[in-house]
């Protein structure tokens, strides 16, 4: 096995062990979307009309994507914690390939996210959500979701290495809960005022949520939306490619150079 893959695997294992030993963050990030599904689904569901869909079927893919965007927070918190505790410095004095540490972290996070979607989707089924499209479409939807999560974690890793501080990362991480609010994760963007609608539709979360709804067959692509939402699958892939192209090199560089 190449150095890179070997180190990455070791770091991947460490990340999983770390989450198992300290499941607090994991429990929070898993129970949050379920409670939001029940709360939004039954409170807003009675007041909101979504063109061509049941609100709860519209909400399930939206919450999946909103939760995936929480990868920014998780990634940031974990890498800031590593810097803060000196773990990053120890790893940097080892003969470990530079990319292995963040790669292992991001990969482990995606695996955990994938496992976490199962209980969430079971609750989704219980409240009436179904795969209304093809099985292939559903597989594509999950793959796209995980790709988006992967991209989000890299943003988080970079920000965590930059802030270097657990508390600051925690506070900044809290702000990432706001990101899905200005997107089509919870509400259709058609009803928003023009300016706000444009902003919301250029939010990557909107493109991915729309793509998931399209691939699961839960809701139609909205009319007259901005390009990434009007072409949701291409738009989502584009967003992921851009985010990864920007944040992977930034994170790896930041990791390698440390505190200067």
């Amino acid at each position: 096995m190449s150095t890179w893959a070997y180190d990455g695997t070791a770091m991947f294992g460490r990340q999983l062990r770390r989450m198992r030993n300290n499941p607090g963050l994991l429990v929070l990030t898993q129970t949050m979307p379920v409670s939001m599904l029940l709360f939004f689904g039954y409170v807003f569901g009675s007041a909101l009309a979504v063109p061509g869909a049941e609100y709860r079927s519209f909400l399930v893919p939206g919450l999946l994507v909103a939760t995936a965007s929480g990868g920014v927070m998780t990634g940031m918190f974990q890498s800031a914690q590593d810097v803060h505790r000196g773990v990053t410095d120890r790893l940097r004095t080892l003969p470990v390939s530079r990319a292995a540490v963040p790669v292992g972290q991001a990969a482990a996070d995606v695996v955990v996210t994938a496992a976490g979607t199962v209980p969430f989707l079971l609750v989704g089924l219980a409240v009436g959500w179904r795969v209304e499209g093809s099985a292939l479409g559903a597989v594509g939807a999950v793959a796209l979701l995980l790709l988006f999560r992967f991209a989000c974690v890299w943003i988080g890793i970079f920000l965590g290495l930059l802030t270097r501080n657990e508390e600051a990362a925690g506070q900044l991480g809290g702000a990432t809960f706001l990101l899905p609010l200005l997107s089509s994760a919870y509400i259709p963007t058609e009803g928003l005022p023009d300016g706000l609608r444009t902003v919301a539709e250029w939010n990557p979360i909107s493109a991915v949520a729309t793509a998931l709804r399209d691939l699961f067959g839960n809701a139609p692509v909205p009319e007259g939306a901005a390009w990434p939402v009007a072409h949701p699958v291409a738009g989502s892939l584009g967003w992921c490619a851009v985010l990864l192209a920007v944040f992977v090199p930034l994170a790896v560089r930041q990791y390698a150079r440390g505190k200067r």
């Binding site: 460490r14 062990r17 770390r18 000196g86 773990v87």
Partner: peptide, 14 residues
Amino acid sequence: GQDTSIDGDLTGRQ
């Protein structure tokens, strides 16, 4: 280093 640099979430053995 001067400050400890171990992963508190892992056991000593890990």
